[in-house]
Design a protein around this nucleic acid. Sequence first.
DNA 1: CGGTGTGTTGAAAGGTGTCAATGCTAGTGG
DNA 2: CCACTAGCATTGACACCTTTCAACACACCG
Lengths: 252, 252
Amino acid sequence: MDMSTKNNALILKFSLILDLTEEEKSILLSLQNECDSIPPQTDIVVEGEDLSTTYIVQSGWTYTYKLLPDGKQQILNFNLCGDIIGPYAMVLKQADHSVRTLTETKLFKVDPEKLLDLLSESPRLAVAIFWSAARDGAILGEQVTRIGRRPAYERMAHLLLELLRRLESVGLVVDDKFDFPLTQELLADTLGLTSVHVNRTIRALKKDGLINYKSDLMKIINQDGLRKVADFDANYLEQTDLPDEIASHLDP
Amino acid sequence: MDMSTKNNALILKFSLILDLTEEEKSILLSLQNECDSIPPQTDIVVEGEDLSTTYIVQSGWTYTYKLLPDGKQQILNFNLCGDIIGPYAMVLKQADHSVRTLTETKLFKVDPEKLLDLLSESPRLAVAIFWSAARDGAILGEQVTRIGRRPAYERMAHLLLELLRRLESVGLVVDDKFDFPLTQELLADTLGLTSVHVNRTIRALKKDGLINYKSDLMKIINQDGLRKVADFDANYLEQTDLPDEIASHLDP
DNA sequence: CGGTGTGTTGAAAGGTGTCAATGCTAGTGG
DNA sequence: CCACTAGCATTGACACCTTTCAACACACCG
């Protein structure tokens, strides 16, 4: 059963910054309603439509994207295990972006009203929610920098390292190898490139002995080399210490 | 005196979504400590350094940016009147980006601990803070889409319309005309272009009769034409209604 | 076994970058 | 009031990264 403390993705995620008490864990569990498995290529949230629910990714990949009228699309971010989809449902009437499943995905629903109440009832969990939002913001900022100021080769390298670290933090990487359900076209929509050029870039990374990529599996062969190419600094992903004043403010 | 209810930028901003009570206004005032005027080109927050304060922009422009080791920089966003700089100071030890003043700027400081306490003490103001963060997130997402999937000409048009709307919402636009303290080089760092190409793009927009730009002043001549070029939908900036359930949840 | 989506490759076009020179304007100091 | 400087804007020629177009290969699947 997924609705247990041990393998609940949200509890796992929040454990990165807080030692959760049993009570807090049970609050977090009671916040979430289980939800059926959702097939790939299904829209969960549609830009412009009403946004009445927040979701937690329990398993699978989803992605946040925007459509342009000429049919192009831009992927903003991926939502992985433990990520919160639409944390802002409590303050925004309509979605400003769409969210679609990439793989078969298991989501837990969270009622925005409950989420709001949680802010006042548990300062510690409020901090955890804010921290998650801050991390997502940092990831989005890095995405801007990647697309705006890096050439294709480094851009790709940087994204792969980000995904590696994010998946690692939720235990989904073994031996620098992880499931990689992205088509080259979706990669292109993520990186602001065309699928043709993504193909050439990936092949270059393979030829240079940095990665090994085969259909649904990505293996990072030379992480140091990749990091040097991408000029990757993981600080934005690995801020798991609260500021001292806040930590002591929460404890007693 | 700036520390009054009438012209406090944060109160002005939050009034966009909430009818603030007098008590709430005074809470918001007591949250902020006045701060000296800061000269242009001054770093307020530096990436990697400790992030101990949240700021509110009372007047002037600042921008959020990231530096790359080869000296390039990418601007993520601008912080205008009423915007919150570093709302995540309460949950992040270190800054994941830098913030610099563009013009002479007046900032008010907010103690992160007080901000945290506010979340539990006033659900309505907690919602307002979340809303501000959600709006900034939406702006950042639009920035990704702009850079990733729009050519230079449309990219510039889109940014100008965003700035127009944002400045309008805080009363800084008169007759489709506003102060524009950006050099073409900073515009380039915002749009992921070079300053040379920004120059050519601006001149093209001028030649096409869409804008009029002269040193520190930007005038939008043909807003409809610009909107058509940029495919601009302001929905992401103008979500000022809370979801019904939340609104009724807060009221009684 | 043919269809369909995805990956791969080549050639050519095009948008944007690079380099370098010139113009412009405001401020400074004589 | 006039050099003089410094920073920014403007322009042209050319290079290059990325896109576009088009064809073909490959794998999965009914």
